[in-house]
Write a protein that binds this DNA or RNA. Structure first.
Length: 403
RNA sequence: GGGGAGAUACCAAAGUGGCCAACUGGGGCAGACUGUAAAUCUGUUGUCUUUCGACUUCGCAGGUUCGAAUCCUGCUCUCCCCA
């Protein structure tokens, strides 16, 4: 393997990082691997409890990919065992523990999505139940003795929950230890994680030292702010853009992101070269509109391709900006000769979860048929052979009703 | 082991026998505005129902009552204090 010079590698590695602890060690490790031709072992643990990946996950996965491209060895840990505990990080509640089967199945889904970013052929996949599941109670006690309560509860999450008089289950203290044990087992050189993982990653360093191993470098990425511009991107806040989102959704959601995030997104989520970033930053401030379109296009292209990105842009301009009807939309067939209430149709095609909600949408002027806003809550539609109607609900739900 | 407090809709949080499908805030959704957002303003936010209304919902299970989120009993869970 031919590695780039340490300085160049560092420049790529540093992009977007929040913190590298300690950076000197990373430099040394890189130098050593350059001298010996031996790649570094880069560890990334993933939590398979929620297998829907979004752009937030991509920040770290992309960092791992960068290491891969630099010639290092990527290890993706499916935390099937730790998943049963539930990471207490950022939680204000005890998480429900999942069964092994659940977590295993999720792990597969997770990897399939991660493969959009990683080089799947060069990724080693491991399940931490393989070693954690074999530990004896004695082993666990030994492990638990290596950390103190005081150090454990200095964590923000625990402190907060403790102050709020929220429950903290004892086994949650084992989570960081288990994750750290992974590092011991895998002899990782670097562990990647979000900045909220700092504590967990440092425990890994600590445990490696106890085990007489070389310590891993901890590399933390910022938490991606979600589309609401406030909270970290997360499915539970519904402020995410999924890796599996359709191109149109991806593009549209991206444009709804607050202007302030444009640059950050370019830096953390796209593959534009480092050298172009300053210019993009400038543009994000002076010309947010076009800059954001560029961002949306770039990201859609990354997960699909250029033509999909072009099409998504067109779709957006058409439907949202010009308020036209899109070319393509889901079609719904109705029996010729049948009559349905609008309310029922809306619910039927899943544009509203209940009849009540559908009624509300009509009352609020959010429903139109062939461009005409429906005023009457009781409106009915009779389908004849050849009937073709365009139903619009809200700003972006379109459907073609056919008979 | 002993004593005390608590569990309300997506979240937070009022409500302590009828006026409660449940105040209020956040969030969500829709409309206006806009380059998409944000901000702002307006409306809306259990299910079924055109209206009237009916039904289900306030940790779980029973009970008292004409009537219960509100009272009683048991259970489950959580927090605090003492040991």
């Amino acid at each position: 393997m031919n590695f780039l010079p340490v300085g160049e590698q560092l420049e790529i590695i540093r992009r977007g990082t929040t913190e590298i602890i300690p950076e000197d060690e990373l430099k040394n490790k890189l130098q050593r691997s350059l001298d010996s031709g031996k790649p570094l072992r880069i560890k990334l643990g993933c939590d398979p409890t929620r297998p829907d990946l979004h752009l937030g996950h991509s920040v770290i996965l992309r960092k791992l990919r960068q290491f891969q491209d630099l010639g290092h060895h990527a290890i993706l840990i499916i935390g099937d065992f730790t998943g049963m505990i539930g990471d207490p990080t950022g939680q204000n509640k005890t998480r429900p523990a999942l069964t092994v089967e659940d977590v295993r199945a999720n792990g597969q889904t997770y990897f399939e999505q991660a493969a959009k970013i990683l080089d799947p052929d060069k990724t080693e996949i491991v399940y931490n139940s393989d070693w954690l599941g074999k530990m004896s109670f004695e082993d666990v006690i030994k492990l638990a003795s290596s950390y103190t309560l005081a150090r454990m509860i200095e964590r923000d999450d625990f402190t907060k929950r403790f102050k709020n008089e929220d429950p903290i289950a004892l086994h949650e203290f084992l989570y960081p230890l288990a994750q750290g044990q992974d590092s011991v087992h895998l002899k990782s050189d670097v562990e990647l994680g979000g900045i909220d993982q700092k504590f967990n990653l440092l425990v890994g360093r600590h445990l490696q030292k106890e085990a007489g191993l070389e310590q891993q470098v901890c590399l933390m990425m910022p938490l991606l702010v979600g589309t609401d511009g406030v909270q970290k991107m997360s499915k539970s806040y519904d402020n995410y853009i999924g890796l599996n989102d359709a191109p149109n959704d991806m593009y549209g959601k991206m444009l709804r992101v607050p202007d302030e995030l444009i640059y950050t997104y370019f830096e953390l989520l796209t593959d534009v070269p480092v050298q172009e970033l300053p210019a993009l930053k400038q543009k994000a401030e002076t010309d947010p509109r076009n800059s954001k379109h560029e961002l949306a296009w770039t990201i859609t292209r990354m997960y699909y391709d250029e033509s999909a990105a072009d099409a998504a842009r067109e779709h957006f301009e058409k439907t949202i900006i010009n308020k036209e009807i899109p070319d393509e939309m889901p079609e719904f067939r109705f029996e010729a000769g049948s009559t349905h209430k609008m309310v029922h149709i809306i619910k039927e095609v899943n544009f509203a979860p209940s009849n009540g909600e559908a009624r509300r949408l009509i009352q609020q002027g959010g429903v139109s048929l062939n461009g005409e806003t429906i005023e009457d809550v009781n409106a009915e539609v009779t389908f004849k052979t050849g009937t073709e109607l365009v139903l619009k609900v809200g700003k972006r739900k379109f459907g073609r009703l056919l008979a």
